[in-house]
Design a protein around this nucleic acid. Sequence first.
RNA 1: GGGCGGUUAGCUCAGCGGUAGAGCACUACGUUGACAUCGUAGUGGCCACUGGUUCGAUCCCAGUACCGCCCACCA
Length: 1024
Amino acid sequence: MPMEKTFNPTEAEARICRLWIDHKVGAAGANARPGAETFSIMIPPPNVTGSLHMGHAFNNTLQDILIRWHRMQGHDTLWQVGTDHAGIATQMVVERELAKNKTNMTRREMGREAFLAKVWQWKDQSGGTIINQLQRLGASCDWDREAFTMSGNFPDAVIKVFVDMYQKGLIYRGKRLVNWDPHFETAISDLEVENIEVAGHMWHFKYILADGETYEYVEKDAEGAVTLREKRNYISIATTRPETMLGDGAVAVHPSDTRYAPIVGRMVHLPLCDRLIPIITDEYPDPNFGSGAVKITGAHDFNDYAVAKRANLPCYRLMDTSAHMRADGAPYGQAVQRAREIAAGSPTTEAEVDTLNLVPEKYRGMDRFKAREAVVADINALGLSVSTLQSEIDPETGSEHLTREPFVEAKKIMQPFGDRSKVVIEPMLTDQWFVDTAKIVGPALDAVRDGRTRIMPESGEKTYFHWLENIEPWCISRQLWWGHQIPVWYGLNLDPEDFIDDGDDALDEVEILTVLVNSSHLDRDARPHCAAELSTVAEKFRDDLAPLPHPLNAARVVEVADRHAAAILLAKSLADYNLSQDPTHLTYPIWRDPDVLDTWFSSGLWPIGTLGWPDTTPELQRYFPTSVLITGADIIFFWVARMMMMQLAVVGEIPFHDVYLHGLVRDAKGKKMSKSLGNVVDPLEIIDTYGADALRFSNAAMASLGGVLKLDTQRIAGYRNFGTKLWNACRFAEMNGVWEGHATQTTPPTATATANQWIIGETAKALTEVNDALKTYRFDTAADTLYKFVWGKVCDWYVEFAKPLFDGPDATETRQTMAWVLDQSMILLHPFMPFITEDLWSTTGTRRKLLVHTDWPTLPETLINPDADREMAFVTTLIDEIRSARAQVHVPVGLKTDLIATALTEDARAAFQRNEALIKRLARIETFTEGLAPKGAITLPAPGATFAIPLQGLIDIAEEKSRLQKTMDKLAKEIAGLNGRLNNPNFATSAPEDVVDEAKANLQARLDEQSKLQAALTRLADLG
RNA sequence: GGGCGGUUAGCUCAGCGGUAGAGCACUACGUUGACAUCGUAGUGGCCACUGGUUCGAUCCCAGUACCGCCCACCA
């Protein structure tokens, strides 16, 4: 059955995709030669519930090109595939899904266990989507090894790393100010915060000095001249977040600030709060900004926190987990009473400070932004806002009034937002787990500094260093449910008094549970034990803890726990613990830390985790460290740097030798793709329209190192056409019997015809260039080379040369050469365009193997024949010139002309004769003779020859004159340039010899050409 | 505020010491033994600006302008 005119991607891709999967072509070690070097890549695991976007398509195309290239070379390859559980993202998706149906319970209503069941359900339902889409892209991963960060051995590996790092003191827990996402009600890391400039305001408040004190406030200009002198009873502070003033612990001024020197150490009244706070000095306030005095709210601002720590000020937390003003704890009067005692020096603890709710009753339970309005209104009402005089013209009377208005500055402020939730992040003082990154950053820096791991492009290396050299502790705990739960258990501090019942009856489950929950506040300071399995630390608890007054019935505890989160947690932990001892009764009050780990903590272990660590698996030994990581530059901190730190910390080895970072894929205009802009290009739609090969080739061609990647569908269409071009070259071959009896040949046929020798050499050149390009990750150069070779050499010239050769004595050799050249084209293109090439491979000739497992060629340089190259250059240049000249003097395309050689060297004559058929056909020449140019001919100079095309009556003499003149002008310019250089004495002495020689040869050739043209012009002048 | 990039044909980008290339777009012609998802021939560039180094600079260095991106606590 003859070939169709075009390749049908829709049909073929589905069929070939199936074929590859069924044959497990991407299995670890597939097509490997014994003892071959290994080549391994870890896929950046996409979110399990995600779908393929253009970034994935780009990224995975590059990985697949490398993997296929190495696999065809017989290397032992592994492309490890898998997905990430993506804590926040997935939890968000599932919550959103639940919310779609109003009859569903919310996450909180259904509780942790039930919600996690829903997440797993969702994972099972949608988790295969992206894997499928990767397959449609043509990715040749080892699908049987698909990993998932929440399945198989991976969670065990994660937990083991946590335990190991905990025991080495690399992980610690502490109450710190962290970025808190009020929507997800979890801590997030610095990296998950996006600072965005928004329109904000700055308010200025007066804090009145205690005991009616006053001072002389003096402002001076730069020269020291007094510009303002007044008696004040207040200090002015500025804030963009008025609601936080409720938690102020002090007002700070710079020690050198003379304006406030008289009142440093004095107390001021905190408005609305019935509290006094001190004026302290600290280096932090900038005397030149605002009033120079800063309110210090240790629990809600990172700078203030640092000041508070230095000054030993208590940090009063004002908000709850959803960023509403706190409504818990004792009444305000009581809390503030205790705060005053603490201020007066009463001993306290961090834990106690945290329990004190210093939000006055009025604001309790308010949303933080509502509270802001209320605080501002109330301070204004008290007359404690700094005010300015405003002039107002009465519209009726026209008279001017001066009024005092609160001073509120409109101001652009940088506000932190959660990168997932998009809500304003609240600095929050909470208990969290941290990786002590300072302790593990060294090896990660060294590995890149000494070149064991290379980062490309180099700018990525700079970014990497900059971040790691200024690394902050990494907050790894998340108050989420979907993730790896922290393997730390706590014993409860029980006060035996609490278990003494008023009556004579023994306490029942409900009462005991109530006591546990209420008395302990689930205090995590109490007897933490970290272990992969609770059983391994059970003895420690038994030695340490007092048992419960009497064993509780486990089932009953769970039953009575109701939906109180802490109670459920406790009950569940009790059950977990005791089930390993006694399936029905709970004996010891132990609970497990409910937090889960940051997703990046687990994905940071992706390289070793997917290879079976901590077991010393054969895969770990063979494929680790991996060869290269290909990923977006946007996750260099999130993932790349952390993998470096973690792998080095855990197994003392770099995770990968090379890191290839690429930019973000943008639309054709360079805009970020976003749903709201409506410019999102769906790779699956591109595949449907143009085929996966076209998308892949475009991706490769775009992949220059560094910069933004602009995706243009016109370009994709262009590469689809490129596939069609190859297809049709094969179709041409088929029509000419090239494939009949053809079987794959690793070595090219011995060719005698120059055109055949030449194209064999061109193939060898293309192979070398592609190899060199891929070795240095220049996917764009490789793609460009292949495009130029297949289209520009094979199709534009060789196929045309073959047409006359098929009719001549070299027909057999030419068929063999064409078959070989097209085979090589399919092989070389296969990593880039796997579908069309695999399909062509199967329909052309007899094949022992699928193309995906066909040997990548090694072609000796001796295949490049310089004589053949020179001769074909002569032929193609001549053809080009004849075509060009004909077009310029408007010879009708269909008209064949004669060609006369007016001068010809022996070499040129031989070259011409050997290729006469080709030249005649492609240049549309009827007859060729040697002799004198007749009147009315056009003249064509060539190396070693001068040709003329007689066109009596067909051309205008004037037109030919102007054509020659134009060429002469161009030549004259070049000659002038070359002369200029060669006549410069410094050029000859300073420039390298070969450059000088080249210039001389160049000049000679130009002069040669010039004299030929000049002769032609003279002849025309005689005529005309 | 700090850091890192970019500025080359109408558009998107390569090149990076020897006076410029590709694809697309554009113009003219064209059903020549595969291909109109095509062919042939063309048009189009003081390589952002100013200095410096050099025999020679689009390329190296310094500065300027504009454009991106990342990081950052000015209340």
